[in-house]
Design a protein around this nucleic acid. Structure first.
Lengths: 384, 384
DNA sequence: GCTACTAATGAAGCGCTCCTTCGTAAGTTG
DNA sequence: CAACTTACGAAGGAGCGCTTCATTAGTAGC
């Protein structure tokens, strides 16, 4: 409510600087005239803005594009390489990390296997190894990192503490953000993995442009991430999307139909059983198909609840099982059509296993944007 | 995404004008110095802004407040009476209307009883009578209306057409907004009544300041209105909050427990039966109490679904039955505590029967604000 | 290799908006 | 009626964006 501040001339310049940065980030290198046209400013004013931004280190000149009529125009680009962002996916069996520039362009990726019941310190060490792998691959150092964003299973509170995590026992009651902040000399963001995956799909995946999206994170554990009005919805206590806690949603035990299917041969490790059932269903095994149908029966109840409550534009099926979306998508659609008032689009994730890491990167980018763009006050800082 | 427009000096003035209007609307008559202090502008600049706003008719001078030290300062106020807003609640048995000034200050209210199965034209005529009553009471004319906002049961699409309405048969497939636009020479907004009630409670009622709120509209029909991140959530097809459509939510038939309770004497009209049961429960009738318990059992399921999905700060119990919140609130809390991950505040509506009308007025005010404040371009129009 | 054409550059001058400063005006207090 | 307090109004200055125009650095055609 303190948006009662009037503006100064310098505020105007600030706004225009940010608009210029935004235009450059969106459209790559641009000439002064192109920038001026896009922003609606005059060329001379635009020049002053870019000069200032160059001085601050946000923008740099690139060689003019040859072969044009007339005098070649100077071109400017946003210096996406003034800093780097890291996204981490802390899963049960794997820790993935990715390093990107300030535009979210991914430059390096690594993966570290880890046992689900590994003790806390080992897990944290694996995170550090994964990130260091990215730094080495992209020949950067930890001091170049602007933000580290982390996604993990479980309920994370606003301060980045783990409130609840059924899957990873060592995680419980951990001040994850605090531990990671000791590890990295930059802001650390911690968020629920389903929410990050939802973000990834709306920014880079199948749900681009949609403002209201329900993301189903289906795998050995069930989760949901909500995008409402273009923003990831956390809820007041950062516990939004915990549909599985409601018995009537039938989500909690839904994966059991796939895990305990009679079609799974003995000796298959429990974490691979569901994959087996889904594969068998794809090949036409009637026993497996029946199990999948029962699974989707359950999945559809909780999903229908979210659709009826939120009326999203799209439902995205993601997570480990989404590799089998060919088997799951149609049955899910059929059930939702019966239950929902207005049928949303139902689509499979296009990002697959990467979705949480990509979402973490996008989360870091969004965090950067938030810092830059509403920029309620304060001039742009100098970079380097 | 067209927020790439840079700003001119005139844009700055525009912003400052809007800031001044906003400050005046929020804090009533202010002197130049007070305005300048609030907005952070200098006094001379503020003077120019107010002069301009007075010229346009948005602001007027009021007599200085006497008895102060020094030279008395001029005072200015927002001319909330340059136009009027009307809110209408089209219920099954009653049509309520209220007229307010541009600040949402209610100046007149009327009520028109109407039969639930009244034909369409009769209903529309009752709406017109209700609004005309307000105009007469406040001695204004229909040409002074800036906006008419209407709340009604049923699913309303984005264009103001009624998609579905179980309670009012005549309503079905009606282009309600279109019919009302023929009636009033100003913008007409149509919205679902539960959503308007939710808006009323977050702006003027018990949920003031909360950003994520679930409003339960409990009465002969069940409905829900969601406020997410401070804004009313409509959903992609304007069908958000239709929890009752999900059988597992147990909402659809929930009121039957109250309607068919054995404690209701014969001869009571069906629409009063539930009120009877609630009253009997308050007086300790064990049969009635058992019925209420069963009712709340059902109510809690759908409510828990919304709480687990959205993790709101507060759940507000409103609608017809909220008069009996003393009987309903504690049982509801007990059940939610068992089911929810993080328990939200659970409170009773403070606006009662007025909530939809007040919400409609607030909706019209918000619409006005939207037109004024983001004001992406275009100067302020002249008023009168 | 020269001329014509094209499009960007850079400098100059203007107008608007906000700022600070100061003398003046209009009340209250004793 | 004088002293005090507070607001008013005018003047001068700085910052920002705009338009205009001569200049510059390329390509295209002969």
């Amino acid at each position: 409510m303190a948006d009662l501040r009037g503006g100064d001339l310098s505020r105007l310049r600030q706004l225009n600087s940010l608009t210029a940065i935004r235009a450059l980030r969106r459209a790559g290198p641009l000439t002064l005239s192109a920038l001026a046209e896009r922003t609606g400013l005059s060329r001379p004013s635009m020049k002053e803005v870019t000069d200032e931004l160059m001085g601050l280190g946000w923008v740099e000149e690139v060689p003019p594009s040859p072969g044009t009529m007339g005098r070649p125009a100077r071109r400017y680009r946003f210096r996406a390489d003034s800093g780097y962002l890291v996204g981490v996916d802390i899963g049960g069996h794997n820790i993935r990390a990715a390093l990107s520039d300030l535009d979210g362009e991914i430059l390096a990726e690594t993966r570290q296997p880890v046992l689900p019941d590994a003790p806390l310190e080992e897990r944290l060490a694996a995170i550090e190894r994964a990130v260091e792998g990215c730094l080495t691959l992209s020949r950067t150092s930890v001091s170049d990192l602007w933000t580290v964003a982390v996604g993990t299973i479980g309920v994370i509170d606003v301060e980045g503490r783990v409130i609840y995590s059924a899957a990873v026992p060592a995680w419980r009651d951990l001040d994850l953000a605090g531990r990671l902040r000791e590890m990295f000399p930059c802001p650390v963001l911690v968020e629920n993995d389903s929410r990050l995956a939802a973000m990834a799909e709306t920014r880079r995946g199948v749900a681009q442009g949609a403002r209201d999206v329900v993301f189903l994170h289906v795998g050995l554990r069930m989760g949901a991430g909500l995008v409402i009005d273009g923003k990831v919805h956390r809820g007041f206590g950062a516990a939004a999307g915990e549909v599985a806690m409601l018995p009537e949603s039938r989500w909690f035990d839904a994966p059991e139909h796939l895990n305990t299917c009679a079609c799974v041969p003995e000796g298959v490790p429990p974490e691979d059983a569901a994959g087996h059932t889904l594969a068998a269903a794809r090949n036409g095994d009637p026993v497996a198909i029946a199990c999948v149908e029962r699974y989707v029966d359950d999945l559809a109840v909780g999903t229908a609840a979210m659709v009826l409550i939120l009326d999203p534009q799209m439902v995205v099926l993601g997570g480990g099982f989404s590799r089998s979306s060919d088997v799951l998508l149609e049955p899910l659609r059929r059930r939702l059509e019966k239950r929902c008032m207005r049928m949303p689009e139902v689509r499979a994730s296009t990002l697959g296993d990467e979705c949480v890491v990509v979402g973490a990167i996008e989360y870091a980018v969004a965090h950067l944007d938030d810092q830059l763009f509403p920029a309620d006050r304060g001039p742009l800082p100098v970079v380097r």
